[in-house]
Computed example of a mutant assay.
Amino acid sequence: MEYDEDDFLMISGIQHFSFCPRQWALIHIDQVWDENMKTMEGNIIHENCHNPDFIEKRGEILISRGIRIASRTLGVTGQCDVVEFHRDDDGGGRLYGHNGLWLPFPIEYKRGKTKDINADRLQLCCQAMCLEEMLGVSIYQGALYYHETHRREPVELTEPLRQEVRKMLEMMHDYFKRGYIPKVRPKKGCPSCSLKEICLPVICKKKSAQPYYEAMLGSDYV
């Protein structure tokens, strides 16, 4: 199956969906957004990463920023923070304006530090899958760079991780097509969410009205 460009979703939405499907739906379906300190810090960190004019060459490595990527089979589009192209005449692909074959190594920049959930790794894996489709190569590893720790953490792009990306994107496409906004499911991450004043996780948590009616009407309640 291939998606039309009009149906493409943003790759960055994978991180939102992994953290909270309702957050993703409010942002990408209802077009709701609000800034907090964490989102502003993230924007500042990404300013240089998304500068497409900033290209380096270090020996047998080309470093490119802000590459636009897409996949028709996944139905997504987006932008890579940084991609290192390593000279690899066995498993690499061709790059316009450069001799030889080059293998991409995507690097995603994140504020904070590594997380227990797979959100960042899923986003990175999806970027790699797009690059594979565009360049006709196989990418087995990428990295996450966390601003708080100033460390690059390698990520193995395994088949289970790829399957999780595919499954999540199928759900996202289904929700988007139906305009479905998931119900509130409060969790420990809610207080740090930039949309907490819009989502109102405590107020909007669905509760049954039955106990209220039973208390007020007693035996007359039907």
Results as ranks from 00 to 15, higher is better:
Ile63Lys: 14
Ile63Ala: 11
Ser64Met: 11
Ser64Asn: 01
Ser64Glu: 12
Gly66Thr: 10
Gly66Arg: 08
Gly66Ile: 09
Ile67Lys: 12
Ile67Ser: 03
Ile67Tyr: 02
Arg68Ser: 15
Ile69Thr: 06
Ala70Leu: 05
Ser71Asn: 01
Thr73Asp: 11
Thr73Ala: 01
Gly75Trp: 11
Thr77Val: 09
Thr77Met: 13
Thr77Gly: 10
Gly78Arg: 12
Cys80Tyr: 03
Val82Gln: 13
Val82Cys: 10
Glu84Gln: 13
Glu84Lys: 12
His86Trp: 15
Arg87Cys: 09
Asp88Glu: 01
Asp89Arg: 05
Asp90Gln: 10
Asp90Tyr: 04
Gly92Ala: 05
Gly92Val: 09
Arg94Met: 05
Leu95Gly: 01
Leu95Ile: 13
Tyr96Leu: 14
Gly100Val: 08
Leu101Asp: 05
Trp102Val: 08
Trp102His: 12
Leu103Glu: 05
Phe105Asn: 10
Phe105Pro: 05
Pro106Ser: 11
Pro106Val: 13
Pro106Asn: 04
Ile107Lys: 13
Ile107Pro: 02
Ile107Trp: 10
Ile107Ser: 11
Glu108Lys: 14
Tyr109Cys: 03
Tyr109Glu: 04
Lys110Phe: 01
Arg111Asp: 00
Arg111Lys: 14
Gly112Gln: 06
Gly112Pro: 09
Lys113Cys: 04
Lys115Leu: 01
Asp116Cys: 01
Ile117Trp: 02
Asn118Gly: 00
Asn118Asp: 14
Ala119Trp: 08
Asp120Val: 01
Arg121Tyr: 08
Gln123Lys: 01
Gln123Phe: 15
Gln123Trp: 03
Cys125Met: 12
Cys126Lys: 05
Gln127Trp: 02
Met129Thr: 03
Glu132Asp: 07
Glu132Met: 08
Met134Gly: 14
Met134Trp: 03
Leu135Asn: 08
Val137Gly: 09
Ile139Asp: 00
Gln141Glu: 07
Gln141Leu: 08
Gln141Ile: 11
Gly142His: 07
Gly142Met: 13
Leu144Trp: 05
Leu144Asp: 11
Tyr145Lys: 05
Tyr145Pro: 04
Glu148Asp: 10
Glu148Val: 01
Thr149Val: 11
His150Met: 14
His150Tyr: 12
Arg152Trp: 02
Arg152His: 12
Arg152Ile: 05
Glu153Ser: 06
Glu153Leu: 14
Val155Gly: 08
Val155Met: 08
Val155Pro: 00
Glu156Thr: 06
Leu157His: 03
Glu159Leu: 14
Pro160Trp: 10
Leu161Val: 03
Leu161Lys: 05
Val165Ala: 11
Val165Arg: 02
Lys167His: 11
Met168Tyr: 00
Met168Lys: 03
Met168Gly: 00
Leu169Ser: 11
